[in-house]
Design a protein around this nucleic acid. Sequence first.
DNA 1: GTGAAAGCGCTAACAA
DNA 2: TTGTTAGCGCTTTCAC
Lengths: 329, 329
Amino acid sequence: MSEATVSRVLNGVGPVKEETRRRVMEAAKQLNYVPNALAQRFARQKSGNLGVILPLLPKVNVFSTYYFSEILSGIGHTAKHSGYDLLMLFREPGEPREYANLFRTQKVDACIILGAQNIPTDYDALEELQLEGHPFCLINQRFDGKPYNTVDADHRMGSFDAVTHLMQQGCQRIWFLNGPPVFSNSLDRLEGYRQALEAAGMTFDPDRVLAGNYSRKSGYAHAEAFAELIRTGQADAIIAANDRMAIGLLQGLKEKGVRAGADYALVGCDDSDGARLTDPPLTSIAVPFYEVGSEAASRLLGTLAETEPPVPFTVKLPVRLVARASSEV
Amino acid sequence: MSEATVSRVLNGVGPVKEETRRRVMEAAKQLNYVPNALAQRFARQKSGNLGVILPLLPKVNVFSTYYFSEILSGIGHTAKHSGYDLLMLFREPGEPREYANLFRTQKVDACIILGAQNIPTDYDALEELQLEGHPFCLINQRFDGKPYNTVDADHRMGSFDAVTHLMQQGCQRIWFLNGPPVFSNSLDRLEGYRQALEAAGMTFDPDRVLAGNYSRKSGYAHAEAFAELIRTGQADAIIAANDRMAIGLLQGLKEKGVRAGADYALVGCDDSDGARLTDPPLTSIAVPFYEVGSEAASRLLGTLAETEPPVPFTVKLPVRLVARASSEV
DNA sequence: GTGAAAGCGCTAACAA
DNA sequence: TTGTTAGCGCTTTCAC
């Protein structure tokens, strides 16, 4: 029995007589044989790896652990059932982004990029990937006018719903605490806020937009000034672009005796674990992170299976407002 | 210039004339050449991968996201600086644990195992690895009498400190809410609790040990009964074997008007993000998860570099009590 | 339906 | 110090 036949049987390709097939399988079992993946991949010129590029989270920063593990689980589950292994590629702060090399060295067949920002370093690296025709997909970040594969949630709609919800609760002066504009999430969320106000016949006031950096601390830092705005009747509600800032703000205001769900209404974004832990519990926009991850993986790996040149995809998954006590009046 | 010389230069091995070296490097830069990692690894018969085996967390269960991402970051950072890539291997519930095949197929050179339990399926898989001499390391789980490489935190000491702290606060009737005994963490924490009581001349009462499963829900489920114990003076403090159970219990008791840090003292374990979010904030035992991960990776990869047969290691990192309002009386 | 043989791009032993 | 060459274990064309 030849090497080639064994290969055919084990890979289920080509014509094989049933009898032969049986004998090979039996022998394999007998000998406890498993094919050497390294050799296999080398011969096929396919790494069998899906790369996941993400910032190293030293003691948790911009990225919340919730966001991170949900997305990763979604990717992992899908990759596994598509026969791909997951290669984690941590990118550290000052480091050059040699994403294209991952493909040139054949470490990955495709990759998913988390935490990309709209800055030249990131943009250039993506542009290089695109030019060389490497399959990749962004999660939670889009680049205007660029046809990069992207899977995102509908953050614009999330903010829109948050404003609508607050107005239904009777709020009139709704503020917005945003994250940095290098993340398209921030822009989308702000846009939804603006649209909802205008749809309700109110005017969008840029002075009511505060700047944070998605950390709890940056939310906390706005507490003092915002307390004053509430006391003087200039604000009765605020939407924070993520839960961490919302929670920081909530805690800071509480220390000043200003209570969410009573003295003002508060809405966060992400519906992370933490939203259920605060007092009062935090109203938030639930984002299907697990699905974002699995959708990105399945779409991307899908393109690898096709023969025709793949068409770029842009997926936007729906979000959902989860009302809790922090947004009551 | 021959293939071999180029290989020598690029890998920095063997004698090479400086002039040659320079010319090769220059040409490589010129041609934008990067070595094919797949071929390299195949020729070397080394995958260059550190495997991380962990349970798939479908919507977050036993594993907290905090625990997960801290450990993973620690592993990732170290692996990266040792020149290894991280291969994530998600294990799904019913699935057979064919860990040894990862080595036979040469997908990994070594692996770190998270979330192992003291049950036959897990034990058998580890025993197989050990017999075949594959390098692996357990995180946060030990098997009595087995010389498996392990990196853990000193959970026994953590509970010991928690009890001591509560007694200093004047607590007399301290209960313990434990996790399942299939995790050595649970046993260690219970042991520390027992030892601290006895060291203080008090008797260990097994009836004061409640059973949970590390979920918030399981903490919440004990609230009703525990409220009664507090009211009747049978309990004035409780230690939960992780923060999630502590938080569930805290929330359940709060709904019944029984306040942590006032009506009873509460201590959790892990010092996760959530400990800072509850009201009152949760006193907890901080575990250096990031360091646990990086220590595991560096020890394990260290053994690969040695020539002599490696000596098994067992590392126990210190924990630290972080006092917050929940443990006041 | 099966076998023979070339080759995937490197490394490493050996020769020069 | 450098070149030659034989693999590494599989897949895949091409004969038969």
